[in-house]
C-alpha cells in the first residue's frame, strides 16, 4: 500500500485490509461534494488573511544540548544516533 509506505507506517496484512476498507468507505462518503460546482471557487488555505509576518535577525541562546539529547532515543558524541541508512542517497 503506497500510502502506508509514504507515511512510514508498517502495517500488517489484516491492518492493511481493515484500513483500506475504512478509507474506501470514507472517500466514498466524501464524494458528497461532487454535487457542488467548484470550478470558479478559490481555495481557502488560511482562514484569517495576514501577510508579511517577520522577525528581526537577532540571536537567542541555544537549547541545552545535554537536556535535549537526554530525551533522545539514542545519542553519541553530542549527536543523535540513527540506525544504518539503507536505500537513501547520501
Amino acid at each position: 500500500m503506497k500510502v502506508a509506505r509514504l507515511a512510514r507506517l508498517h502495517l500488517n496484512d489484516s491492518e492493511v485490509d481493515r484500513m483500506t476498507n475504512q478509507l474506501a468507505g470514507m472517500l466514498e462518503h466524501f464524494r458528497d461534494v461532487d454535487a457542488l460546482d467548484l470550478s470558479d471557487v478559490e481555495p481557502l488555505n488560511q482562514p484569517i488573511p495576514l501577510s508579511n509576518v517577520m522577525r528581526d535577525d537577532v540571536e537567542a541562546p541555544s537549547l541545552d544540548r545535554d537536556e535535549v539529547l537526554s530525551s533522545a532515543p539514542a545519542a553519541q558524541d553530542g549527536r543523535f544516533r540513527v540506525p544504518p541508512i539503507v536505500g537513501f542517497e547520501e
Binding site: 512510514r8 508498517h10 530525551s71 533522545a72 532515543p73 543523535f80 540513527v82 540506525p83 544504518p84 541508512i85
Partner: peptide
C-alpha cells in the same frame, strides 16, 4: 530520531515504520 518512542530495527526505514 530526536524524542519519543523508538522501536529499534536493523535499518533506518524499518525503524521509522
Amino acid at each position: 530520531v530526536r524524542y519519543g518512542l523508538r522501536v529499534d530495527a536493523k535499518d533506518l526505514n524499518s525503524m521509522y515504520g
